[in-house]
Design a protein around this nucleic acid. Structure first.
Lengths: 214, 214, 214, 214
DNA sequence: AATGAATGAGTTTTCATTCAT
DNA sequence: GATGAATGAAAACTCATTCAT
């Protein structure tokens, strides 16, 4: 299953092989349960080489997180075209997100589950990625609100709340979308688009639900 | 912080102390990184006693999951009073959920992060709890729809979709509600109530967003 | 399986129950693999009581060895009647030996396997029992030689050699006799009687095989 | 006494050192009482290396049994020269057996005591070795009977009985031969040769001892 | 560019044994 | 006469990490 054992590859290539192996092992077993032995074996190299190129288990984990976080944001970014209306941009982004996470489940495991589970140098990396996405979504919603309803005066924190909930739901639904029984990326994206639009509509209509006194 | 080292306690008491300690250690470090040594020390007992009462690390983890899952569902259940209108019941449930997770962050970590991350005997327990909550929310929403809009003919799967997204968002937001900078349980609950009400409104109005052709 | 849990037995009775349990556990698992927990449970008492009556694992093991060694030699001794001719006495002794070991396989395991396997306070006890039996057999053979062949001038060390080999073979054959497929005590005893008689015959006839020069 | 701590040996060499150490520790203490720590220390390496090369305590024990069983049968096999008469061959085999067991008492302990005491994967290995030796002896005796007495019509099962008892006695006498007080391999072998010859003689003469009615 | 050899420190788990009642 | 509560010490096994080549 591991990369074919080819000798004397240039460093850059070997490093990617190691990261590939690490994504799989970390994603499937988690940080603690993953062993450097297994990663080296799956990568088709000896353990000292892994250490030579990637220094330590922590550094390797961090490298994996960074590579996969970049890949995910990149996938979303390139899916969104500026010349499209805001709702279409949000749709394209969501679809790209669910498609990417479905195609790279181990990477998504690492980012969503294991990196956050494992304390500080790592969680921060994912938090940054998440913040980037939340900001992106927040802006899209604001723009969409203006385009669709010609009503620009939504309170920032209300939009932010919607974005936060939307992203949170998306994260939760990524797993659900992958269950294999016909859910899939498109359906997950459609579900979320409807919620986004519904949330937006009620926000603009002032139909908010008001909590009872404490 | 560890329990005061008191000698010769009855078994039932000691067991709870051990579970308390285990929740903290498991919640903060995860299953793999948690060591039985640390749990025993925090509980103020020797390791053999932990094994005598709780058998193994796996059994201990399971006991923790069960106790905390029961506590969480219990907290939600007792917060909801049957003599209230459905929207109030949903609000009370959400508030109880966010309050409980905020008050027991380690327990929430165990349930939401670590138990699901750690494979089969454990994940199933949480899945069961989640299913119970999703069912509960689904019913509430259906009732609320009838009460508020006198329109009983919403498709079941649409309501279920709303409930699923709502619970998913709630799970993600539990962490966000705890960030300490003024978010809090009430605000998280309010955000989600609006989400729910908006979704309900657009669902009933048939204002769904339709995805572009693939 | 263990003794029925009856309360407040006189000490002597309880002690025998403990020894009974210990024989089974030691015999089936060996000294090291046997746990005081298991013995106490099988005996139907609490562990502290075992310690109160028998002091320590070592002492318990020793007590078992002594009781069972005594039982075995006693069985052989009472089977042999002084008013019989020597060959009959040897036969009766062998038969008693094989019958007893077949009826008490755990006890025989303890004596033959585990006690010898486990170093000094224990091995000595069995060595003593064995010496007693070898002496007994040696005398019988000498007497039998005189009776049967009227030739008293056999070298002591030759008779001793025969006895040693005979007892050794008996020990080896005790296991073989218990294989269940029709071997049984009588057949083992018969096989050995023949060897004893054959050895005796050749000894007396001077038909010894002489080894080549080293 | 432990192997001198030399660094960076090729794997094959280290493995033999580990097996050497294991033979000593297992032989003197038995399987359960032997600790991997002690074996590693005696071998002059760290415990992880023992596990790296030999996997587990069970595997190590099995490797020891196999190596020593092979060594013992090999010693007997090479001692026996086909151009010799059968009685000489039997003598040479017995002598080799007692010499080898005397020279490698720990190995003999492992094979005779501990391996058989310790249940199934292990006992089978020794049973196989024993069967090989019994067959070998059976054949030798049959040939010897023909050569020495020109009487080929001995019942197979009688010869087999003689062989069985002979090997059983040999096993028991291996310990006795090592007591140091002048017994030694030659004397043990001589005793058994006489036994064999006597048995053979009485077998051929039909001088069996007949047991009394039950 | 790459690896076979090696280990310190830690993990879960078990056990004989005692104390207080 | 009897036990529930408790532990020190050690066992098997694993792992991230380095050294010498």
């Amino acid at each position: 299953m591991g990369a074919v054992k080819t000798k004397r590859m240039p460093r850059a290539v070997r490093e990617q092989q190691m990261l590939d192996a690490a994504v799989r092992i970390f994603g499937q077993r988690g940080y603690m349960a993953a062993s450097m032995d297994d990663i080296a074996e799956l990568a088709g190299v000896s353990k000292p080489l892994v250490y030579l190129y990637l220094n330590s288990k922590d550094d390797l984990f961090l490298a994996v997180i960074r590579r996969e976080a970049a890949a995910l944001t990149e996938a979303v970014r390139t899916a969104v075209r500026l010349d499209q209306p805001a709702d279409r941009r949000l749709w394209d982004g969501l679809l790209a997100f669910f498609t990417h996470t479905a195609r790279h489940p181990d990477a998504w495991s690492v980012l969503h589950l294991h990196a956050r589970t494992h304390g500080e140098p790592f969680a921060a990396e994912v938090t940054a990625m998440r913040a980037e996405i939340v900001t992106f979504v927040t802006r899209l919603i604001a723009v969409a609100a203006r385009e669709a309803h010609r009503n620009p005066d939504l309170a920032d924190h209300e939009v932010a709340g919607l974005a936060e909930a939307l992203v949170g739901a998306a994260e939760s639904l990524a797993a659900w979308a992958n269950t294999g029984d016909g859910v899939g990326a498109r359906q997950a994206a459609a579900t979320l688009m409807n919620f986004a639009w519904a949330g937006l509509g009620s926000l603009m209509a002032g139909r908010a639900w008001s909590p009872p006194a404490p």
